[in-house]
Amino acid sequence: MKYGYYPGCSLERNAIAYHESAMAVAPLLGIEFVEVEDWNCCGATEYMSVHMLPAYALIGRNLALAAQHQLNGKPRLVAPCSACFLNLAKTDKYMAEDPRLARLVNEALAAGGLHYKPGSVQVRHLLHIIVEDVGYEAVAAKVVKPLYNLRVAPYYGCLIVRPTLQQPFDNPEYPTSLDRLLRVLGAKVVDFPVKTHCCGGHMTQISEETALELIRRLLKNAADYGADMIVTLCPMCQLNLDGYQEQVNRRFGTDYRIPVLYFTQLMGLAFGLPPEILGFGKEFVDAGPALAKIGAEPPPPEKKERPPKEALPMPAMPAER
């Protein structure tokens, strides 16, 4: 499976662990990435609110470059960063829906000798292609060191689940695809009701107070459910939860030490790849103690405590896959 690859700026710097681990696991899953040549910034989250048209034009340029890839069929472009993914996907959608926007963006692109026809590139997030194109079974087949005993909180963030995207790929309110992927890796997934709540985004730069409260809520919920770590798929989420954890502790008098890792790093571990090539050690909150809990043996089946006689039965839930 061949895909266009748009790393975005995060994956070259703060999220290099994400990039390295993605590159390490991709060949095992039969994925080949072709990086878009001469790509530029996606505008991230704030440029849209400064000036819309240049923001769309910036993204349009990346789409136009990706469209030039000679892949089989419609070029498929993968963005591991949630913000990059959302910007690419929504610009494509808006250009298709609004011919005036498409015209203005293409006028700007013409200056660089480029043109983009909306809908000619299929934009996907890295998680989408792993669970949809590769599939859980193919992932399971590669697992050699299951992540037994590791309790993980799956954190999707707010960007990749938006229901207005052209092809919402999971339940926007309560997604479960990452949960299932982590279970396939052997980890114990805890219920994480805030899985799509905001990480604060760039509010850390604008209103630290707001951002720290949002980060605190996420850390608190993961701790309340006894998660050993939070697993994420977005560089922004990872940076806020990991990099600001110490500040949250100072401000609120808490003592959270919850490492925040990328799902690709855990995939690499479960596939038996050496940690050095998976970007471990770059996180602020040391993941060492949590990873040390990974056991060689599957945990004994959880003992079902016999509920007291007077208790009412719980509704049956579909079996965990």
């Binding site: 309110e173 309560y174 479960t176 719980m314 509704p315 049956a316 839930m317």
Partner: peptide, 17 residues
């Protein structure tokens, strides 16, 4: 009601139909 997971039925004990 399990089709609306954000309402917690089946996950949260004290949510009833």
């Amino acid at each position: 009601c399990r089709r609306i997971p954000q309402y917690g039925y089946g996950r949260l004990a004290n949510v009833y139909t």
